[in-house]
């Protein structure tokens, strides 16, 4: 109960900052919008490859949502880097606050921004003429998947921020991880058309789990078995990542 309350209060700390500077949300959206427009135009012709179904915009939209989730949530750890520099972190750690709440609250905040951004991208895709075959229910599942993937990367970003205590490390981790994970998945290209080794790697890539679940739920005739399985994997990984991030605090304290 206390844990939930404290997580909620930490989450609200982020929400209040966002409410005061909503422009920040817009800035993080610029990149996904460019991806959607640019990749949409650039790769339009791939749908002519035998074995590809539907329009590329329909195919691409869940891919962009997933990229956005990784990218946006990846910055979560910056907050802790700032807290460490400013003294806020040490002040919080001398209180009896449950350490898990510090991570859970910021992860919830990271997930919240991903949800808002996903909704905006879905609206943009609709305006561009995308077909969401899964209807409202499918879009809700798309949002859930994006938030789950976001929470994994929020936790990992928190762990990097707390352990490395440097902005550069967080930036480095995000840029290092984002593109490879995207290209080693079916975000931009159908699984059957990927080279064999990428196809193998993709099976173990959480970004790919998310993109397949999101695509099946929102854009195609939903495959419940696949969606539930992938969501299960994402939930498990989110819990593992949250555990790691929470343990990072005691690691940080040992170095003080």
């Amino acid at each position: 109960m206390t844990a939930l309350r404290q997580s909620w209060q930490v989450y609200m700390r982020g929400v209040r900052v966002l409410r005061r500077q909503p422009a920040y949300l817009g800035m993080t959206l610029i990149q996904p919008v460019i991806w959607l427009l640019l990749f949409g135009a650039l790769f339009k012709a791939v749908t002519r490859i035998p074995g590809f179904h539907g329009t590329y915009l329909d195919y691409l939209t869940p891919g962009v949502v997933v990229m956005l989730a990784v990218f946006s949530a990846g910055w979560t750890g910056m907050g802790f880097v700032e807290d460490i520099e400013s003294g806020v972190m040490d002040r919080m750690l001398t209180t009896p606050v449950w350490r898990g709440a510090l991570n859970a609250g910021t992860v919830a905040y990271g997930g919240f921004t991903v949800v808002i951004q996903t909704i905006l991208i879905v609206l943009l895709a609709l305006a561009l003429g995308a077909h969401f075959q899964g209807g409202v229910g499918g879009v809700v599942l798309l949002i859930v998947v994006a938030a789950l993937l976001g929470s994994i990367f929020s936790s990992l970003s928190n762990a990097v921020g707390v352990l490395a205590r440097q902005r550069e490390s967080v930036i480095g981790a995000v840029t290092f991880v984002q593109l490879p994970l995207t290209f080693l998945s079916a975000a931009l290209m159908q699984r059957s058309l990927l080279p064999g080794w990428i196809n193998t790697v993709a099976r173990f890539n959480p970004v790919n789990w998310a993109v397949e679940a999101a695509r099946s739920a929102a854009m195609e005739k939903i495959n419940w078995g696949l969606v539930a399985g992938r969501i299960g994997l994402l939930v498990a990984l989110a819990l593992v990542a949250a555990g790691l991030a929470t343990r990072a605090f005691s690691r940080y304290q040992r170095s003080l």
Partner: peptide, 18 residues
């Protein structure tokens, strides 16, 4: 111990955005 101490650190401990 944390429940019975108050700590004012060398650095400011307040969140400046709040």
């Amino acid at each position: 111990v944390r429940r019975s101490i108050g700590v004012v650190g060398q650095k400011h401990g307040a969140d400046t955005a709040a």
